[in-house]
Each structure stands twice: as structure tokens, then as C-alpha cells.
């Protein structure tokens, strides 16, 4: 299992154990994590599953692809460490990762 900590805008955190191979978005939605609405269901098409990846983990998730960057560019909350969680596939290398959700999705 891959352990992920989600921290919301108020600082409250929730730890989720997820199967490797699923997306970070799926892990969040299946565990009822606050602040991830994922309207499009994982198609990189709505930018409502944005997370900020803690710096020490950002390199391990890889940089956003062009279409992901385009979607992120149309949020008001994009930062240098923004990712769409539907575009991150969980692997053992991400075990222990900490991500924060924006105050408001899109």
C-alpha cells in the first residue's frame, strides 16, 4: 500500500492507504478526501482535482504534461508545485507523500 497525507486549506489532514497503480485522484475520491471534486472523472479536463505537492515529493511525481499544464493555467490557484491528482499514478516511490488541496477547486 502507498500512504498519502492530504492536508486541506484549514490545515486538517487525512491519511489514506491506496493501492499502487491507481491515480492519486482516485485514492482521494474513494476515501472521501475533502476538496477533491474531480468532475471529469480523471480525463485531465476540469482542473477540480488540483493538489500542491510538497517540494521534497514534487520531483518524484514528475512535471505536468502539456495538456495538464494547460488546464492548471486556467485555475486561479495554480502554483509552481501544482499537479492534477488524476495525472499522478501512485507507486511505491510515492509512499509517504504529502499533498495540500487548494481553498477552492477551479
Amino acid at each position: 500500500m502507498v500512504k498519502i497525507t492530504f492536508v486541506d486549506n484549514s490545515g486538517a489532514s487525512q491519511i489514506v492507504d491506496a493501492q499502487p497503480g491507481v491515480s492519486l485522484m482516485r485514492a482521494a475520491v474513494d476515501n472521501g478526501v475533502n476538496g477533491i471534486s474531480a468532475d471529469c472523472g480523471g480525463a485531465c479536463a476540469c482542473a477540480t482535482c488540483q493538489v500542491y505537492v510538497a517540494d521534497e515529493w514534487f520531483a518524484k511525481t514528475g512535471a505536468p504534461a502539456e495538456d495538464e499544464q494547460a488546464m492548471l493555467g486556467f485555475t486561479n490557484s495554480v502554483r509552481g508545485n501544482s499537479r492534477l491528482s488524476c495525472q499522478i499514478t501512485l507507486t511505491a516511490a510515492l509512499d509517504g507523500m504529502v499533498v495540500t488541496t487548494p481553498e477552492q477547486q477551479t
Binding site: A38, D39, C40, G41, A45, C46, M71, F74, T106
Partner: peptide, 18 residues
């Protein structure tokens, strides 16, 4: 219901949705 298409999806998704 959040998968409804009325706002469109992709880069032209409705800006005023919220």
C-alpha cells in the same frame, strides 16, 4: 451528477461556473 456536461470540459470549461 458532477460529470454533467453543461459547463463543457477541457480548456474552454465555463469560467463563471462557481
Amino acid at each position: 451528477v458532477s460529470r454533467q456536461l453543461s459547463f463543457g470540459f477541457g480548456i474552454h470549461r465555463c469560467m463563471g461556473m462557481n
